[in-house]
Design a binder for these strands. Structure first.
Length: 883
RNA sequence: GGGCGGGUAGCUCAGUGGGAGAGCAUCGGCCUUACAAGCCGGGGGUCACAGGUUCAAAUCCUGUUCCGCCUACCA
């Protein structure tokens, strides 16, 4: 077989496309619906159809893909269930913008046509993010891709809605909700983002209806006073005793409103008098309820003042504020204005200031559902990693409030409720009813509102598997194994899936939840388009290759800390990918095609025995790290092992067998190289799918895709403690010689002679057996090894354990330099020894510390002493020499 | 207001009771035919600050301070 032609550096672009296509064509991503193997299932957090891949997606999906590929190699029947989310408000906004550009709007187009247009838009652009996930290498089972507006998922939504309604867990009613005047819809509490703003606190005089005097109330929103129906004071407040039954006059409108007493009012804040606007403030609404107050709505759905706002009718809410302040001022009713900082709610989609508004909406009564969801986590049926998030989950679940699920938009699951024009009956049903069950009338009009997108997302772990049908997939994969997501949607999504899964499936939706960090920019700021600090993952993949990017994400995915991303770091890991490429290139260039698998054979060479041992240990550690979601540890272990053990030592030592040995040795070295490289590729495959597949396929003896290969298993018989110890000694002396060479600035081209004093005969034997390695790796041309060897003239000395390694530097040795070097070494050892001796001098330590710790410290001190003694003797040698 | 996380080498971060670590950057020596996207070697830290617990603290406790995030109905 001819030697492989292989490029000098790794070029990712072409490779990546080719292998992804290969995996898809060979249907390697597809799960078995029924299987003998244990199932392992992850449902993807469905990206928004309007979305494009950002750093958060990249991290989230890389982590999932690592686990999916790892579990597949471990022999599981894996399913990574993909799909997208219809993102009601966001998608509707995008299509509306399109319409606006064409000079029209959805109302002109009409509901039916508009929805058609959204579907068209989705056909055209909805696949974008899916293709981007493919670029990332995601091993999703695309044959099962779902969309929250699919026929099947829509059926699940209706089923859930109807059942919850029948159980009394969904109701409709007039309440204060968060209204976005721009999106023109209600929002759930969660969809409101609070932000601190500098504002003002206005003190307004409300004259008493009878007689002189007035009450002063403090407010941040003077425009809402038009809807005031009372002024509340605390019954305990001495300032306001005797106001029982008294009325004040609403400024400007001169409407008399009562003074009421309520414990809620904080006597410390403002003047202790609170204006009550039940139609425009959530708490005022509740006070209004308990006191039976009228609700006067003065702001409409566009954020404009309505006819009840009297002279301000038609004004925008902000414009009205200015005008009303001017009018109050003019009438002498504005007592004072104080600067005031408070948080204001904004729409999470469009950042418009939220208007709390009285409105008729649909709600889910979540308390009973939440209780079961809390219980499930308390009992450990679902585990949240890192556990810190369990606390956050409990806190939110325990204080949960009813969920407003109706949205006044068109794109989404239309609420399956019909109103009878004849008798007013509300019919909630899975299928469109023909007649009213109450009056048999045929005039039924469907509710125009649609459901919150998160309502359908909450069903994702079972709706995607075929529910409400009892499918095989559902039986095989529910409960799913793991959910991987960012904490920003812990409440939006995770909590709601828990509630729905428990309620409808009778079991948790997933066994584990892994919450990962947020990706920030290099300064730790949240990436956002407006800040202009976004790093586009697609550009990163183009520039550095997907494998380097994925490895970077894994390496930085430490639990509980945000990731500060910068391109420099990705570049560093591109070097690592290239390193692997070149290591494989070296192996491939030396293979001759007649290599026999060495597995089962016991290799004689030290390096071979050692690398097998390390391979076993490292695979075990990497496996454990992945099982515990310590991605950074897993990546770090791979990096350290592959670069600093496999490349730096094993490959270098293999050259000896390749170029310096006999026929048998050459052949067995080639076999081992092939075996070890295969294992290394398999170890790395979950992190770097593309480069590992490319190299795997080039290796003789590999069959099929690396995706289907078995992850390296640590097997007990490859553990070779002796080889590890011997390697340690060998590396120690080689490093010792290199230290001397480096510090003495001996160029690599210059060989040196070395005399070693090795007191232990066994150690001496090991080193003699590996003389050739010492000579090549430390650039030594003459090597003498014996117990009690004398220090030659003009030599610098490295001390390793009880061994002294004298490096002959005839003529090259700068005595001053060597003295300096030894003194530095001595100082270092002395410092460490002093610390250890201090411990031994402490009676408390000797008495109370565990025996093995004491023994360990004793041993250490012994080592230091020995070393120190040898270093000192060498130093003295020069002092004499000098004299 | 409440809660959480963080402050360790120039930078980014691991390390949760017993010898301060990694990567990058930096400095010195090398184009040694797998790799200069590389090799070999060196330097660099009062582990934010102050107390405490302990034989022993980067690690546990208390307080201070700075940064970040989440959450909330004081208008």
């Amino acid at each position: 077989m001819s030697r492989e032609e292989i490029a000098k550096s790794y070029e990712p672009q072409e490779v990546e496309h080719r292998w992804y296509r290969y995996w898809e064509e060979h249907r390697l991503f597809e799960a078995e619906t029924r299987s003998e193997k244990d199932p392992y299932c992850i449902v993807i957090p469905p990206p928004n159809v309007t979305g494009t891949l950002h750093m958060g997606h990249a991290l989230n999906n890389t982590l999932q893909d690592i686990l999916i590929r790892y579990k597949k190699m471990k022999g599981f029947n894996v399913l990574w269930q993909p799909g997208t989310d219809h993102a009601g408000i966001a998608t509707q906004n995008v299509v509306e913008k399109d319409l606006a550009a064409k000079g029209t709007d959805r109302h002109t187009v009409g509901r039916e046509k508009f929805i058609e247009l959204v579907w068209e838009w989705r056909e055209k652009y909805g696949g974008l993010i899916i293709n981007q996930l493919k670029r990332l290498g995601c091993a999703c089972d695309w044959s099962r891709e779902r969309f929250t507006m699919d026929e099947g998922l829509s059926r699940a939504v209706r089923e859930v809605f109807v059942r919850l309604y029948d159980e009394g867990l969904i109701y409709r009613g007039d309440y204060i909700i968060n209204w976005c005047p721009r999106c023109h819809t209600a929002l759930a509490d969660l969809e409101v983002e609070h932000e601190e703003r500098d504002s003002h606190l206005y003190y307004v005089r409300y004259p008493l209806e009878k007689g002189d005097g007035h009450l002063i109330v403090a407010t941040t929103r003077p425009e809402t006073l038009l809807g005031d129906t009372a002024v509340a004071v605390n019954p305990e407040d001495e300032r306001y005793q005797g106001l029982s039954g008294v009325h004040v006059l609403l400024p400007i409108l001169d409407r008399p409103i009562p003074v009421i007493f309520d414990r809620y009012v904080d006597t410390e804040f403002g003047t202790g008098a609170l204006k009550i606007t039940p139609a425009h403030d959530p708490y005022d609404f509740e006070i209004g309820e308990t006191h039976g107050l009228k609700r006067i709505k003065v702001i409409d759905e566009d954020g404009r003042m309505n006819e009840l706002a009297g002279p301000y009718r038609g004004m925008d809410r902000f414009e009205c504020r200015e005008k009303i302040l001017a009018d109050l001022e003019a009438r002498g009713l504005l007592e004072k204005i104080e600067p005031y900082r408070h948080s204001v709610g904004h729409c999470y989609r469009c950042k418009t200031m939220i208007e709390p508004l009285l409105s008729k909406q649909w709600f889910v009564r979540v308390k009973p559902l939440a209780e079961k969801a809390i219980q499930a986590v308390k009992e450990g049926r679902t585990k949240i990693y890192p556990t810190i998030w369990e606390g956050v989950y409990f806190d939110w679940m325990e204080n949960i409030r009813d969920w407003c699920i109706s949205r006044q938009i068109w794109w989404g699951h239309r609420i399956p409720a019909w109103y009878c024009e004849g008798c007013g009956e509300v019919v909630v049903a899975k299928e469109t009813p023909e007649t009213c069950p109450a009056c048999s009338g045929k005039d039924l009009i469907q509710e125009t509102d649609v459901l919150d997108t998160w309502f359908s997302s909450a069903l994702w772990p079972f709706s995607t598997l075929g529910w409400p049908d009892e499918t095989e997939a559902l039986k095989t994969f529910y409960p799913t194994s793991l959910l991987v997501t960012g904490f920003d949607i812990l409440f939006f999504w995770v909590a709601r899936m828990m509630m729905m899964g428990l309620h409808f499936m009778g079991d948790v939706p997933f066994r584990d939840v892994y919450i990962h960090a947020l990706v920030r920019d290099a300064e730790g700021k949240k990436m956002s388009k407006s800040k202009g600090n976004v790093i586009d993952p697609l550009q990163v993949m183009d520039r550095y290759g997907t494998d380097a990017f994925r490895f970077t994400l894994a390496a930085f995915a430490a639990q509980g800390r945000d990731i500060k991303m910068s391109e420099e770091r990705i570049e560093g890991y591109r070097h690592f990918v290239n390193k692997i490429w070149n290591a494989a290139r070296f192996v491939l260039m030396n293979l001759e095609g007649d290599e026999e698998p060495m597995l089962g054979h016991a290799p004689a060479a030290l390096a071979d025995r050692w690398i097998r041992t390390r391979l076993g240990e490292v695979s075990e550690e990497v496996s454990r790290a992945l099982e515990e979601y310590r991605f950074n540890d897993a990546a770090g272990l791979c990096y350290q092992f592959v670069w600093h053990e496999f490349c730096d030592w094993y490959l270098e030592m293999a050259k000896q067998g390749l170029y310096g040995g006999g026929e048998m040795e050459r052949k067995s070295t080639r076999g081992m190289l092939c075996e070890v490289l295969m294992a290394v590729l398999k170890l790395l495959h979950p992190f770097m799918p593309f480069v590992t597949e490319e190299l795997w396929q080039r290796l003789p003896g590999s069959t099929g895709s690396i995706m289907e290969a078995a992850f390296p298993e640590p097997s007990a018989h490859t553990r070779d403690r002796e080889a590890a110890d011997e390697m340690k000694l060998l590396m120690g002396v080689i490093t010792g010689i290199r230290n001397v060479r480096g510090e003495m600035r001996i160029p690599p081209s210059k060989n040196v002679s070395v005399v070693m004093d090795i007191p232990d005969p066994q150690d001496a034997l090991v080193l003699r057996r590996n003389e050739a390695h010492i000579m090549t790796l430390a650039k030594v041309d003459r090597l003498e090894i014996e117990a009690g060897a004398r220090k030659p003239e003009g030599s610098a000395t490295a001390v390793y354990g009880e061994n002294q390694i004298h490096v002959l530097l005839k003529g090259l040795l700068d005595f001053g330099e060597e003295r300096k070097r030894l003194r530095k070494e001595i100082a270092k050892v002395e410092k460490e020894m002093a610390a250890a001796e201090r411990k031994l001098g402490n009676r408390g330590f000797l008495e109370k510390a565990p025996a093995e710790i004491v023994a360990e410290v004793r041993e250490r001190v012994e080592g230091f002493k020995q070393r120190l003694e040898k270093l000192t003797r060498n130093l003295e040698f020069f002092d004499e020499d000098d004299a």
